[in-house]
Every structure is written in C-alpha cells, then in structure tokens.
C-alpha cells in the first residue's frame, strides 16, 4: 500500500462573495478508504466535494488528488491555474455522483455510459460499449441498456449514474447525497451498489444522511459544520461517543 493519500486537503478556503463557505478544511483520505461526511444543511459539504474536482475554485489552501494539485500547478513558490484542457484531464480521473442523478436524458443508458470514454478518452465504441455492458450488469441493470433515463425509476437512474462515473475508470469516487432524492424503498438498492464498490477497494468520499451506511461501510466519519471539520474519526467512535457538543446535538437530531 502506498503512503501517499488519495485526497489531501490543507487549509482549504472557499468564499462565495462575502459568504465564507469553507473556512480551513484539513483532511486526508487514503487509497481504498471510504470517508463519509455528515453535517447540517449549508455546512459546505457539497461545496467541498465540488472543490475536489475543481467544479469550484478554491480561494486559499491546497487540495491534491493522487499527489497532484487539482486545477493548479506549482512552479517554485507560485501557483498557476491550469488551462481548461488540463483540468478536464484531472476531472476524468474523479467520478462524481449527484443527488439528482443528472443522467443525459437524450441518450440511452448505454450512450450515457459510453459517451465520456469515447469522447474524452478516445476509446473505441466497441471497447466502451463492452465495458458499459459489464458495468450495467454489475449494478444489476443489464436489461436496461437501451432504455432512456426517464423510463427508469429513481433508484435505477442513480445506479446508472454510478455506472456512468465508473465507466471512466476513476481513481476516486465522490458521492453527494446519492440517496436523498429517492423514495425510501429505493435507497437500499443504491447503497448496496456503493457497498459492493467499497468492498472492491474504490476510494470514496460520501456525503450522506444514511448514518447506518456510514457506520458499516465508512473507514472514517467526518462531521462538518459552519465550513469547518468539527470532528473526525472512526465512525463507531464518532457516533457512539462524540467529543464535541455540536456533534452531539446534530446526532441527537438525526439518529
């Protein structure tokens, strides 16, 4: 196992105008680990995830994935923002799954999965389609290759979205409340897919309200509030024995 963390954040700051959304985030995620993030609405969880793949620019601090800065390059003491093409190359290594799935509605399930590998990585159609089929089998949707997203249930759409991200063979997967938009009876099927992915050794950061999932699957649990990490540790410890008052009061509301 390498000693280099997959994700390393040092004093990451992010403002929207006057609003300080991230006020110094420090954390490390080791390869093959699953980090779960919890915290009240507006605490900056989504913003932090979006900084990791440079959908948002950070205002201060350092953020690196697999040993390379995200969106920037360091030369000597100075840090330069990378051109669009370089940022895209980096993003292609990081999968992201959204609360509202965001599948491409004008494409079939297969096209959703093959689009980026073909257009971004210049894979041949046959290779991309082949992997797409295998991934769909893995998320239990082999029979839906030719369906359009709107013909699928929410749970099925989210499983396709996970497969779409995996089709790029990412080093890291980011999940932003992947089950929050789902009917309760559909949550399980998505969590099962994520659990299997974690068991296969994928490095994952999961923002979630599913405390049960965090406890069973997470290697670490981070509680965020007001743009800072209030508490982090082994999920069992944080959940059973929170050290901070803010963590305690948040957990008392969600447990």
């Amino acid at each position: 196992m390498t000693s280099m963390p997959m994700v390393k954040a040092e004093a990451v700051h992010k403002n929207f105008g006057r609003l300080e959304v991230l006020r110094g985030i420090d954390l490390e995620v080791n390869p093959r680990d699953v980090m779960c993030m919890i915290g009240p609405s507006g605490s900056g969880k989504s913003t932090f995830l979006r900084c990791i793949n440079h959908l948002e620019k950070i205002d201060a601090g350092r953020l690196s994935v697999d040993g390379e800065l995200v969106g920037y390059r360091q030369r000597g003491d100075r840090i330069y923002e990378l051109p669009d093409a370089e940022v895209c190359k980096k993003r292609a290594e990081i999968g992201m799954v959204f609360q509202h799935f965001n599948l491409f509605p004008h494409m079939t399930v297969l096209e959703n999965l093959a689009e980026a590998p073909v257009r971004v990585k210049r894979e041949s159609r046959a290779v991309a389609a082949d992997r797409a089929r295998r991934l769909l089998e893995r998320v239990g949707l082999a029979e839906k290759v030719d369906a359009y997203p709107r013909q699928l249930s929410g749970g099925q759409q989210q499983r396709v979205a996970i497969a779409r991200a995996l089709a790029m063979q990412p080093k890291l997967m980011l999940f932003d409340e992947p089950t929050s938009a789902l009917d309760p009876e559909l949550v399980g099927e998505v969590l099962d897919v994520m659990r299997a992915l974690a068991e296969d050794g994928m490095t994952m950061i999961v923002v979630t309200h599913e405390i049960g999932f965090a406890r069973e699957v997470g290697d670490t649990l981070v509680f965020m509030d007001g743009g800072v990490i209030v508490e982090a540790g082994k999920p069992r410890d944080v959940l059973a024995n929170p050290q901070q008052e803010r963590t305690r009061s948040f957990l008392s509301k969600v447990l």
Binding site: D84, C88, E93, I94, F98, E115, A116, R119
Partner: peptide, 23 residues
C-alpha cells in the same frame, strides 16, 4: 437546459466545447 447537465458532463472530464456540442 438544467445546469446539472453541464456539471455532470464536466465531472466526466468533458471540455466546454464537448459539453456544449454533445450535452
């Protein structure tokens, strides 16, 4: 077109031209 579409495409590594043309 919903902004989430652009974000999902960007997150897959598509550049601005591709996002516009394909998505």
């Amino acid at each position: 077109v919903e902004h989430g579409q652009t974000e999902a495409a960007q997150a897959l590594g598509m550049d601005r031209g591709l996002v516009m043309r394909r998505i």
